[in-house]
Design a binder for these strands. Structure first.
Lengths: 229, 229
DNA sequence: GCAAAAGTGTTAGGTGTACACCCATGA
DNA sequence: TCATGGGTGTACACCTAACACTTTTGC
């Protein structure tokens, strides 16, 4: 090792994951009870320490798989959190990532195993350390990004209805949207494919299923189109 | 130390700074020659290792002061870079931050001291490690943010002219803007204060100086206004 | 037949964009 | 007086936002 490196200090580095899911018109955050001291038993985001044989994204992928049972999860970096005493045990520099989960793929068994639960986003209380800050930073990013990129579909099943999609955006932006304007806008983009059957679970009439066409979206991107809600 | 922490691995953590300045209608990046192996002598961003008595932002502030001589610099996080072999010497996790500099405050002497130079952004070549990636991520962020927040003023002297301001945005977006539309938009926001004197350095007629009114901007923010270019 | 959610068009106002000429001044 | 960059207004196209009724069907 070059002498220049030797004289530098080293740090614990962890990742913390803001794992979001969507069901019944609401956003949910996966939280668990911390398993060790300090602050054992308090609510915490899902996290893990970085290992020397992993890149950061590999750490996140490992942690996400451990807690959700899903391999290919949409995730992005939120930022680095490095206040000296942010972790009340030792100095730990943490990298926050958010992940968007299709709850149909989620392995419910893991909740018991990790003492975890899906908490309604609106009702999330005090989390340990700076985890509330990480959550709030995530929501800022999500609200900005969701308006210009088709992130929302990661939170929905493969087949979804337009009322579902609308209620998702209403949950993200905490507002109500006009049904006609919303439908016009999203359908005009020509990135959804209408299915022949309906979801009858939430009304007698039933709402047609749609699927997000990722290839179509990528193709349009190449032509200079861009998603905007 | 709790036993849980003891068994975890530790890492070198550094910050790398994308320091941008603006003059004569062009954006410039501060780069220097690396002073130690590996890759000694090659072009690199300004960086430094995090110390145990510093938060991340303190590290950045220290590094920025060291290389620019300025204390209060606008800076924001770009992200964490953690590929295993990104640093060819040792494993180092790096946190990138960008900074926007008013070149009038910059201490030119420091360039000699650190073997640094202001390289025209368009002409920046290969930098070490993943520094080009950091730069490109910075520009993505900057272009997005500059459209909705008054970041640009950090790159200008306290007093600037509208042609200057416009050329700054043209440099950031690498495009040309319509003079009338640009002026209309920026003046309508009512966050600039016209001065009584003119800058005659770039034309015979001279262009009026303006100043950015930060208090005015903050006040408008409170009323729900938001900046948009 | 009625309650409950799905689905459907039009219009007015505002915003973005394109565009051309006069002004002030120093050399 | 002329070359150079500074400064100004309008018209049109497009997009956004507001708005109400009909359809389907299980109970």
């Amino acid at each position: 090792m070059s002498p220049f490196y030797i004289e530098q200090e080293k740090f614990f580095v962890s990742v913390d994951c803001i794992i979001l899911g969507f069901k019944e018109g609401k956003l949910y955050l996966l939280i668990s009870k911390r398993k060790f001291e300090p602050l054992k038993g308090q609510d915490t985001l899902m996290g893990g320490f970085v290992r020397s044989d992993e890149s950061l994204s590999e750490t996140v992928t490992r942690v996400l798989f451990e807690y959700t049972g899903i391999q290919d999860v949409f995730m992005e970096q939120v930022g680095a959190y490095g206040e000296i005493n942010r972790d009340e045990g030792e100095r730990v520099i943490s990298l926050a990532y958010y992940a968007l989960i299709n709850l149909e793929l989620f392995d419910e068994e893991l909740c018991k195993k990790h003492n975890a639960r899906w908490e309604e986003l609106e009702k999330v209380g005090k989390l340990i350390f700076d985890h509330n800050q990480m959550l709030s930073d995530t929501m800022d990013i999500l609200r900005k990004k969701a308006a210009t990129q088709p992130l929302g579909f990661n939170l929905l099943p493969e087949r979804f209805t337009l009322p579902q999609l609308q209620s998702l955006y209403e949950a993200i932006y905490q507002t109500t949207l006009d049904k006609r304007n919303f439908r016009k806008k999203i359908l005009e983009m020509d990135i959804l494919e209408k299915q022949e059957d309906k979801d009858k679970s939430s009304s007698k009439r039933g709402a047609f299923y749609y699927e997000f066409r990722k290839e179509k979206y990528n193709e349009l991107l190449r032509k200079g189109f861009y998603f905007s809600l």
